[in-house]
Nucleic acid binder design. Structure first.
Length: 115
DNA sequence: AATGCCGGGGA
DNA sequence: TCCCCGGCATT
């Protein structure tokens, strides 16, 4: 029997134009904190406009809101369920079951993130 | 509802 | 042996 598997998405998929792993210059004023760990990192922000001359009396460059899509509002209480254990299933998702560890695939004790 | 896993089952 | 789901425990 054929398994309805969608083999397509490669394991490595870092959407970054021009490579440069680090890409983002750390020595930037606006430090971005990639904390919302989520498989599809959807960044919807406007970056660029480096030159900003022109004397600005008092312009408050308030935080560059880089909201993407944080389903977890309460950070401290993000833990969806079962406080411990971010195993293949939660990390990859059911849509990518092909990437889980063998154990998780067969619903056994995870062997990758044995926490 | 969802994850995580044992037990049990199919090819 | 390799592969997976039912159902339970847990949150």
């Amino acid at each position: 029997m054929m398994k309805t598997h969608s083999e397509a998405t490669a394991p490595v998929s870092i959407p970054s134009t021009g490579s440069a792993s680090a890409g983002f210059t750390p020595t930037n004023s606006s430090s971005f904190s990639i904390s919302w760990q989520s498989p599809p990192v959807t960044f919807t922000g406007a970056m660029g406009s480096p030159s900003n001359s022109q004397g600005f009396g008092d312009q408050r460059a308030q935080t560059i809101a880089v909201i993407s899509s944080p389903p977890r509002a309460t950070a401290a209480l993000s833990r969806k369920v079962r406080g411990e254990g971010k195993k293949c299933r939660k990390v990859y998702g059911m849509e990518n079951r092909d990437m889980w560890c063998t154990a998780c695939r067969w619903k056994k004790a995870c062997q990758r993130f044995t926490d």
